[in-house]
């Protein structure tokens, strides 16, 4: 918001459907407001720094190509003048309308007290990017969440599974713009699916292998599951309520 266009011009213009709006944050190239890391990045990687934007007065965004994210981020972490040792957040943004998904890394350097936002744009037909778990362990769950809610695959991730939704969730990736708020199935179907899960929806494969047959649960549906408490031992394994007592 550095130029003379008022922030509230859009009030006079009235609301626009979000599909017509093109996102164009203001570009600032004045050296006085340049970010030292951005300058260093441009010197180091040159063409690989696709764009540099400044938003909200002093927040700097750097766009990099998705196939070089690991290289650039590891340089940002290890270079002595950068030292971005805290990965605050990994997330994604879907603007809808067929535009590419953005993967957003929020970095912070405790030593230099600097924040930097790095973005990669992924076209919808190639939602794949290298995982940064090797650099920051914090990325582990954050990338799993992005995979779950946006459907972006992180290559070489140690444990890429759905994290918030059930493992057999069949309706898609909820935070994508084409996903309706109330889900794709009817409420009755969602309830039926939720209550007709069996063992493999509660445990992952290696856990079932570890637990073995002796701890296997009866299927949830059917009268043999829990007529009047005979299967107590199994039921306790299920909800675990007795585990601590």
């Amino acid at each position: 918001m550095a130029d003379d266009k008022s922030s509230f011009d859009s009030v006079a213009e009235g609301p626009r459907p979000s599909s017509e709006v093109t996102v164009s944050p203001v570009k600032v190239d004045s050296p006085a407001r340049a970010h030292p890391s951005v300058t260093a990045l441009t010197d180091q990687f040159g063409e690989a720094i696709l764009r540099h934007e400044v938003v909200a007065t002093d927040q700097h965004i750097v766009f990099i190509p998705p196939d070089r994210n690991l290289e650039i981020l590891s340089w940002l972490r290890d270079d002595l003048d950068q030292q971005y040792d805290l990965l605050r957040d990994v997330t994604a943004v879907d603007y809808g309308g067929g535009r590419p998904l953005q993967v957003v890394y929020q970095l912070f350097s405790l030593f230099h007290k600097q924040a930097l936002r790095v973005k990669c744009e992924l076209p919808l037909d190639a939602l794949e990017i290298e995982s940064v778990c090797g650099l920051w362990m914090a990325a582990n769950w954050l990338e799993r969440e992005v995979y779950d809610l946006f459907g972006i695959t992180f290559k070489n991730h140690p444990d890429l599974r759905r994290i918030l939704m059930p493992p057999d969730y069949a309706e898609g990736h909820p935070l994508r713009k084409d996903f309706p708020l109330r889900g794709r199935f009817s409420r009755a179907e969602q309830t039926r699916r939720a209550l007709s899960q069996d063992l493999k929806h509660y445990y992952f494969d290696d856990e079932i292998e570890l637990g073995g047959e002796s701890q296997a649960l009866p299927p949830m549906d059917g009268p043999q599951a829990l007529p009047s408490g005979e299967n107590e031992a199994e039921a306790e394994v299920e909800t675990g309520v007795e585990a601590s007592e």
């Binding site: 009817s186 409420r187 549906d221």
Partner: peptide
């Protein structure tokens, strides 16, 4: 009813009407 164990209490029609 033992058959009702682990089943939703409401049938599809009722769920649709309340939700």
């Amino acid at each position: 009813d033992p058959a009702a164990v682990a089943k939703p209490r409401a049938d599809a029609e009722e769920i649709a009407s309340v939700s």
